[in-house]
Write a protein that binds this DNA or RNA. Structure first.
Lengths: 249, 249
DNA sequence: TATAATTGTCTACATCATTATACAAATTCG
DNA sequence: CGAATTTGTATAATGATGTAGACAATTATA
C-alpha cells in the first residue's frame, strides 16, 4: 500500500471485481513511483501470486490498463509502463483553469458542452444566495490538457446578474474574460468541499473513462473580493489522471 | 447527478457491480440533500425503474447501506434515511486533527495502531529531505469521531531528530503535544496532494468499511514555520463518511 | 540453436451478479 | 375489515467474473 511495502490485499464479494481492484492498485503504484516510466511490470504469474488470484484475473486488470493507454504488453518481453504520473492540478483561492497546469501540459483548453437557463435547485440557490427557483444559467464544460479530458464542470450563475454570459463564454472560451464584461475583474474561491465517488455514465463518456473509474469532486463558490457570490460550481476530476495540489500560502 | 436533475445512469460490465454503483449514488443523493434525514426513500420498484435494473439489484444496494447504518428498512412501511450528511473535515495550513470537527462530533480521538523504525522509502525520504534509506519512525494512527473511524494515517518522522516520539505519542495521544517535547511549538502544512482510490483490505478493516468503498487520500508534508520538514504523512478518509473542506483564507 | 521466461489463446467449470416471477408479511388508509 | 402499498423470501434461469490447466507464440539469453 505504501512505498516499498508489501502489496495490499484484495477484497472478495465487495461489489468491485478483483480485476478492477488490481488495476486500481497498479495505477496507484505507478502514481507513487513504484514503477518508473518504461519500466517492466512484474510478470503476470508474480502479480497473481502477490495478489492471491489467478493469472487470468491479473490479465483482465492489465487488459483494462492497456485499453486505457497506461500499459503496453509485448508478447515474450513483458508489460511496460507507458504513462507518466498523474497531472497535478493546483487548487487555491485564485486558481483559474488555464493557469496552473503550465509545464505539465503544452496545450490546455476548456470546451463548452452545453448551456441552459433553469430554476435553481436548493443546493445551487443556497450557494449563490438566491431564492430557490430563481433562474440560473447552467454551463457544462470540459477541461482538456494535451487533448485528454482532465475535468468536467457544472457551473451556475445568477441569470439576472449575468444575462448572456453563455454567449460570451462560447465566444471567448474563457470564464475569466467573460466575467470582465460584467464588471468583474477579480474573483476568489470562497469555499471548496472535496469528495470522491464512482463516475456516473455521463461523466464516463465526457471524460473518456473506463467504467468503474473514480472521480474527485470539488464543490466551490466563487465570490468577488467583497464576498458577493458569483458562481457555484461542481467539478469532477478523473482520479486516475489527476491529483489536486493544495497551494501552500 | 446534480441536485434536482434526473438520476444518473448506471454502467454495466464495468468491474463495479450495479448494486454498488446504485449504493454509491443513493449515498451521494443523501449527501447533497436530495433525501433529508428520516425521509423515506422511493419504493424499491420505483428505484429499480429509475436505474433500469431489477428490484433485487436495488435491494442489494439497500442491504449494503442498511448494513452500513445509513438506511433502515421497515417491512410494509418503507426505507428511511438514518444518517446525517458527511462529516466535513477542514483542511488548511494549520489543521490539527483534534480541532476542526467541533460541533459535528462530541467525542474525538486519535488511536495509535502501530509504530516502527525502518529505512525510508524513496517517497518518504524525498518528502522529509533525507537520504534514501535513512531511518524513519513510522506511526500508524486512526482518527475517530463519536466512536466511528473517520481517518487512517501513516506518518513518518526523521528517526534521528525525533527519537522516542512514538512513546510520547502513545503516552499523550497527541502529535502536537509530543512535538513540543522536541522543541517544536508550531508547524504548518507545507503541501497537500489529494487523490482518491478504492480502499485496500487493510484500510477496509481499520476504517470499518464495506468492501469496495472509496477513500480520499491526502499526502502532506508538515514543516516548521521556517520551512524545515518535520513529518511526511499519508491520510485516508472514507469518502462515504467524510468530505474535506478547504478553508478560505 | 536450444532453453527459459513471458505474454496470448483456448476450454471447462465454479461462483457471483442480475433478471424474472411468484407469493408472504407488515403497514397504511379508506 | 378489505384493498393497496411496500418490504421480505423463495426459486429458477442467465450472464459476468474468477479458477484451473494446457499449450502456442514471441523474445531474450546461455
Amino acid at each position: 500500500m505504501i512505498g516499498q511495502q508489501i502489496a495490499s490485499s484484495i477484497e472478495r464479494r465487495s461489489g468491485v471485481s478483483l480485476w478492477r481492484q488490481i488495476a486500481d492498485q497498479i495505477l496507484h503504484s505507478i502514481a507513487i513511483g513504484d514503477f518508473a516510466e518504461n519500466a517492466a511490470l512484474p510478470p503476470e504469474i508474480a502479480l497473481a501470486e502477490r495478489y492471491g488470484v489467478n493469472r487470468h484475473t491479473v490479465r483482465s486488470a492489465i487488459a483494462a490498463l492497456v485499453q486505457d493507454g497506461v500499459l503496453r504488453a509485448e508478447q515474450g518481453r513483458g508489460t511496460f509502463v507507458l504513462s507518466r504520473k498523474r497531472l497535478s492540478y493546483p487548487i487555491g483561492a485564485r486558481t483559474r483553469f488555464s493557469e496552473g497546469l503550465q509545464g505539465q501540459a503544452t496545450e490546455r483548453r476548456s470546451v463548452l458542452l452545453e448551456s441552459a437557463v433553469e430554476p435553481a435547485s436548493r443546493r445551487v440557490a443556497e450557494g449563490l444566495g438566491l431564492a430557490k427557483g430563481s433562474n440560473v444559467i447552467r454551463l457544462e464544460t470540459r477541461g482538456e490538457a494535451d487533448g485528454q479530458p482532465v475535468s468536467r464542470a457544472s457551473g451556475w450563475f445568477d441569470a439576472k446578474r449575468f444575462e448572456g454570459i453563455e454567449a460570451a463564454i462560447a465566444e471567448t472560451g474563457s470564464v475569466t474574460a467573460s466575467l470582465q464584461r460584467f464588471g468583474i475583474s477579480d474573483y476568489l474561491r470562497q469555499s471548496t468541499v472535496l469528495s470522491a465517488r464512482h463516475a456516473d455514465a455521463a461523466d464516463l463518456a465526457d471524460l473518456d473513462l473506463q467504467s468503474g473509474a473514480i472521480v474527485l469532486v470539488t464543490v466551490a463558490v466563487n465570490v468577488t473580493p467583497d464576498g458577493q457570490p458569483i458562481q457555484f460550481a461542481e467539478t469532477r476530476f478523473p482520479a486516475e489522471r489527476v491529483e489536486l495540489k493544495l497551494s501552500a500560502r
